[in-house]
């Protein structure tokens, strides 16, 4: 048989065997949860579902309040101050850079929250009595996505501090120029 033909048969076969192997490993990982653990999830099913539901509500409120606050700081304060500085003929490039990065981080916050909320909704919709493994996996996913949202919020707060520091630097240099 032609070598090229042999390769054309062997390579797909290897790929098939490898993918079956990967599926087998992931399936084995899902099955790693022992019976005792599954029983624990079933036992605390109702309680954990209630906790998820309460957290969903309180986080939705937090998202609205935080989103409005961060948006207000950007549009009503930072951008306006930058415009004023720039129209007065001063160099506001550092302040503008922080404001631009802040706006990008704010967009990231919105996206991260959507991803988290969807994952949390997905966890809530799973019947944890019948599908304890799927429920556990969904909760772990939501947990990770919530941590991402928290990190993005920390990033936003850091940028607010950076802007404050840059403002002081700008003020100092402006006063020096005036004297």
């Amino acid at each position: 048989m032609n070598i090229k033909l042999k390769l054309a048969v062997i390579i797909p076969l290897i790929a098939l065997v490898a993918s079956v192997g990967v599926l087998g490993v992931s399936s084995a990982q899902s099955n790693e949860m022992n019976q005792e653990h599954m029983e624990k999830i079933r036992k605390n099913c109702l309680q954990s579902k209630n906790s998820l539901s309460q957290l969903h509500r309180s986080d939705a409120l937090l998202r609205v309040n935080r989103g409005q606050l961060y948006e207000s700081i950007s549009t009503k304060l930072m951008s306006r101050f930058n415009s004023r500085v720039s129209s007065a003929g001063h160099n506001s490039s550092n302040l503008s850079t922080i404001t631009r990065d802040y706006a990008q981080e704010l967009d990231q916050f919105r996206e991260d929250y959507i991803a988290y909320e969807e994952q949390l909704s997905s966890a809530e919709s799973i019947n944890c009595t019948k599908q304890p493994v799927a429920f556990y996996d969904a909760v772990v996913g939501a947990h990770e996505k919530r941590q991402t949202v928290r990190d993005t919020v920390a990033g936003l707060n850091q940028m607010l501090d950076d802007y404050r520091r840059e403002l002081l630097r700008f003020e100092t240099s402006l006063l020096k120029e005036d004297n």
Partner: peptide, 24 residues
């Protein structure tokens, strides 16, 4: 506004950890 933003650690704590939910 900075004070308000930093008053509370938003999305902090660990209420979604399997341990907190009692499913660890």
């Amino acid at each position: 506004q900075l004070k308000r933003a930093k008053a509370v650690e938003a999305f902090g704590g660990d209420p979604l950890s399997p341990k907190s939910l009692g499913i660890d």
